[in-house]
């Protein structure tokens, strides 16, 4: 099997064994939140295995508009660590981990769920864990377990920390390759789509020289439909031209009876207030100190 490039996390379905690569925790939580949200909305059982404890995982999902705490309380969702699932006594055995997944598949069916979604944070494999050489065998086992099932698995790899050889060795066992849609990325600026809540995320420093990718991202935010969040929480600078472009897009969205939320630093928020954006119906300006 070969991985399709450029698949959106919102397009995943049954039998998909997807390889998500992320560059920062914000991207990981955003994409995972979309995967979990869509699973919960479809009535599926959702399991998220990660280094983050259940409290942190639920908090990150709730912050992105996913009702994770209620789903965990009623048994539709589980957030848990790797120990006892992928690892046993900090040792990794591919057959045991695949066995755990098969157990989850059977358990969700017994509970009456029409399907299962499993997100696996693979950061544990960066530690000196015994048996790590069985990782490709594990990924192969997942692919076999998913055939003919109603389940989907999203394996999450940090592309900055995993070496290219390891990523290449596991990529072939996945049916899908997932990453955030990126309009622009270099050392100073990143403009990408945000999935949960829907919108775009801009981080770094933004000036007129990135007007073209910013325009594409804003145009897609308008086309997406529904309420939009323009997440600029990690945007340290935005110049006058780009401030106007973002404001114009926000006004366009608001004029369609949709709400648009602009999250940004207080200094950046002041720039939007100067041009009257705080007084527009449908536009919510959230400045953070």
């Amino acid at each position: 099997m070969t991985a399709d490039a450029g698949v959106q996390v919102t397009e995943l379905g049954a039998e998909d064994h997807a390889c998500l690569t992320f560059g920062e925790s914000e991207e990981l939580f955003d994409l995972t939140a979309a995967f979990v949200r869509d699973g919960l909305d479809a009535g599926l059982k959702v399991v998220w295995v990660s280094e983050a404890g259940p409290g942190l995982a639920a908090g990150e999902l709730e912050r992105r508009g996913v009702a994770a705490e209620a789903a965990m309380a009623n048994g539709q969702m589980t957030a848990a660590g790797c120990e006892g699932r992928l690892l046993s006594g900090q040792e990794f055995r591919a057959d045991a981990a695949v066995g755990w997944l098969a157990g989850e598949l059977a358990s969700s069916a017994r509970q009456g769920f029409p399907g299962l979604r499993v997100a696996l944070d693979m950061s544990w494999a960066l530690r000196p864990v015994a048996g790590i050489e069985e990782l490709p065998e594990f990924e192969q086992g997942i692919a076999a377990a998913l055939e003919g099932s109603t389940a989907a698995v999203l394996c999450q790899y940090d592309r900055e920390r995993f070496d290219p050889v390891t990523l290449a060795s596991v990529a072939g066992f996945h049916t899908r390759a997932v990453a955030a849609a990126t309009y622009y990325a270099d050392a100073l600026l990143r403009i990408c789509r945000q999935y949960a809540p829907p919108g775009i995320r801009i981080a770094g420093e933004l000036d007129f020289q990135a007007a073209e990718p910013l325009g594409l991202a804003l145009a897609e935010a308008i086309r997406l439909g529904g309420d939009i969040v323009i997440n600029m929480s990690a945007l340290a600078f935005v110049d006058a031209r780009c401030t106007l472009m973002i404001a114009d897009a926000a006004r366009t969205i608001a004029s369609q009876s949709r709400s648009v939320t602009l999250r940004c630093l207080a200094e950046v928020a002041t720039g939007f207030k100067r041009i009257g954006l705080a007084d527009v119906d449908g536009i919510r300006l959230v400045g953070r100190r």
Partner: peptide, 17 residues
């Protein structure tokens, strides 16, 4: 400038700011 964005940017805003 080259590569105008598809938004009605008011050139002159920089000096206004």
């Amino acid at each position: 400038p080259d590569g105008l964005a598809p938004w009605p940017v008011q050139h002159g805003h920089g000096l206004w700011l």
